[in-house]
Design a protein around this nucleic acid. Structure first.
Lengths: 190, 190
DNA sequence: TGTACATCAGTGAACGCGCGTTCACTGATGTAC
DNA sequence: TGTACATCAGTGAACGCGCGTTCACTGATGTAC
């Protein structure tokens, strides 16, 4: 059932987008190739016409997740606004469409090196972007980068932990988000 | 090959200890029952004489990891010393014997409810313990708890991220640990 | 422009492999006398 | 204390099931004339 070149490209994108969301939601190893293809409206057999392996898809999906997230972020709204959204219940509960760092950080060590490189690039880029947002408020470049790295760790840790306990201890989950939100504001607002 | 009651108890403990380390190192779903039993010096068939299922083992192993960690921690050495050790390269690289929060946080959502409860209890207890360490230095109980929650998020996020990029970007991994170590000291030392 | 044919994206069955769990069996332990 | 037997912790083969990957086949696309 050959399809036109436009359809072929659409299918490729659909597979990649479906994978990016499904991998974030359930982790690389808990999503089957068949599930990704089905979410893209195709059958599993055709997968290897689009990607050489599941690992290659994982790398591409990880990269796409970071790119999407960086593009969606609007620096002009300021750091405070960004932290509020990142540490919100909405972001905690939108795992599939959320930041790839809390989703992938725990699993990435067990993935292929290429996937790990894709992830590390994303983390580095994210720290850099945050450092630039901070940098505007004076301080040296080194200090901004160090502060950014600390903020990223706090943000990611808060969301990872808030998600991990959300199903069994709603209050603790909320507390983790709120405490980091307030703590971070007190910190970078010094 | 029936064994004595003492041996039986020893075997039970050995299985639990092996599971606690292996699960922390590789994640619940990436360790087989056979591997746990083998690490305990037994064969896989005898497993169901000790535990009703792999999920039950996961819950018990998670609980044990938190208990071991809390017992090992010495509050009298102070918060600063504790942070230094938590955010060290040694702790980053000792996944099997390290804190269960960075190891389990990402996977726990996909485990049985009983395992999630065991984890949430551990997190809550950890925050509480940290709050008590902070509480000594004056401040109200509520503030101490909020500060503790933020510190925990930062610590866990830094270790999770440092581990996730360690294999492909040593410098970034180091940077994340160091930035959080310095940032946290500046914060709780205010 | 219309026709004939080669190409190849997609389909679904099948292959290997690994894992959680079960089970018949073994032989040392613990107990009843 | 010594003996006979029931118990049961541990063994290893086997069962079901799921998943990544392969492959023969299909039929629409794109191209050569």
């Amino acid at each position: 059932v050959r399809v036109s070149k436009e359809k072929l490209e659409e299918h490729h994108d659909a597979v990649l987008r479906a994978a990016s969301r499904l991998f974030r939601e359930h982790g690389f190893d808990n999503v089957t190739v068949a599930e990704v293809m089905s979410a893209a409206g195709l059958t599993h057999g055709g997968f290897y016409g689009h990607f050489a392996s599941k690992a290659e898809l994982a790398g591409a999906a990880c990269h796409l997740a970071f790119v999407d997230r960086l593009n969606a972020c609007d620096p002009s709204r300021g750091l405070s606004d960004y932290l509020n959204r990142y540490l919100s219940v909405a972001h905690r509960d939108d795992v599939a469409g959320g930041c790839p760092m809390p989703s992938f950080a725990g699993d990435i060590r067990r993935q292929d090196k290429s996937v790990q490189r894709s992830f590390a690039e994303g983390v580095s880029g994210f720290v850099q972007k945050l450092a630039e947002m901070i940098g505007k408020d004076a301080t040296s470049r080194r200090q901004a980068r160090a502060l950014a790295a600390n903020i990223v760790a706090d943000m990611v840790g808060a969301v990872v932990l808030a998600r991990s306990v959300a199903a069994v201890d709603r209050g603790l989950s909320q507390e983790l988000l709120t405490s980091s939100r307030l703590g971070l504001k007190a910190m970078y607002g010094y």
